[in-house]
Simulated assay, not measured.
Amino acid sequence: MAAPLAALTGESLGWGGHVALRDVTLRIDPGERVVLLGRSGAGKSTLLAAFHDRITERTALVPQDHGLIGTLSVFHNVWMGVLDDHGTARNLRTLVWPRKAERARVEAVLQAVGLTGLGQRPVAQLSGGQRQRVALGRALLRQGAVVLGDEPVTALDPAQGGALLDHIAGVFPTVVLALHDMGQALRIASRIVGLRDGRIVIDAPTADLSESDLLTLYR
Rank of each mutant, 00 (worst) to 15 (best):
T206M: 02
Q120S: 15
L209C: 06
V74C: 00
L165K: 11
G128E: 04
P122Y: 07
W97V: 08
H86Q: 12
M80D: 03
Q130P: 04
A20W: 03
G10M: 06
L209N: 05
L47Y: 11
D150T: 08
A3K: 14
L126H: 10
A178C: 00
I55D: 01
Q64K: 09
P122T: 04
R191V: 00
L48E: 04
P98H: 02
D208C: 14
G129H: 09
I28A: 10
A145F: 12
R199L: 04
A50E: 07
G117V: 06
D84E: 12
S45M: 07
A135R: 10
V153N: 02
P205K: 15
G149V: 08
P30M: 07
T94F: 05
R105E: 12
E11Q: 13
R131Q: 14
H76N: 09
G149E: 02
E102R: 12
W97G: 02
P122W: 03
L186Y: 09
R93Q: 03
W79G: 04
T71G: 12
L136D: 02
I200H: 09
G137R: 12
L5F: 07
Q111P: 03
G81W: 08
I55Y: 10
D53E: 15
R133C: 04
T94S: 07
G41W: 09
P122K: 10
T71A: 13
T216E: 11
A189I: 03
V106F: 01
A104V: 08
L195M: 05
A7T: 11
V146I: 15
A112K: 14
H86L: 13
T9K: 13
A204P: 09
S45Q: 01
I202A: 02
L95T: 07
R133V: 05
L136G: 01
T88W: 14
L21Q: 00
L48I: 12
R138Y: 10
T56V: 13
T56P: 03
A159R: 14
G114P: 02
Q111F: 09
G70I: 05
A124S: 15
T59L: 05
R131E: 05
G170I: 04
R199Q: 15
R121Y: 03
A163N: 11
V82Q: 00
R196G: 02
G10W: 12
D208F: 14
A89S: 13
D150M: 06
G119W: 09
Y218H: 03
L92M: 10
K44A: 01
A163Y: 08
I188Y: 11
G70F: 07
L215R: 15
G194F: 02
M182H: 10
T88E: 08
H167A: 13
D53A: 14
L21E: 02
L5W: 05
G41P: 00
H66E: 08
L177E: 00
T71F: 11
G67F: 05
V201G: 04
L177C: 02
D84G: 07
H180F: 02
V146L: 06
L83S: 07
L217W: 11
G198T: 10
R90M: 01
R133M: 04
T71P: 05
H66Q: 13
Q111S: 15
T56G: 09
S212Y: 12
L165D: 01
D85L: 12
I69Q: 13
L110K: 01
L165S: 06
V171E: 00
V176P: 01
D65E: 13
G67H: 09
W79L: 03
T25F: 08
V82E: 00
V193F: 06
V34W: 10
G81S: 07
A189V: 06
Q120Y: 09
G87W: 12
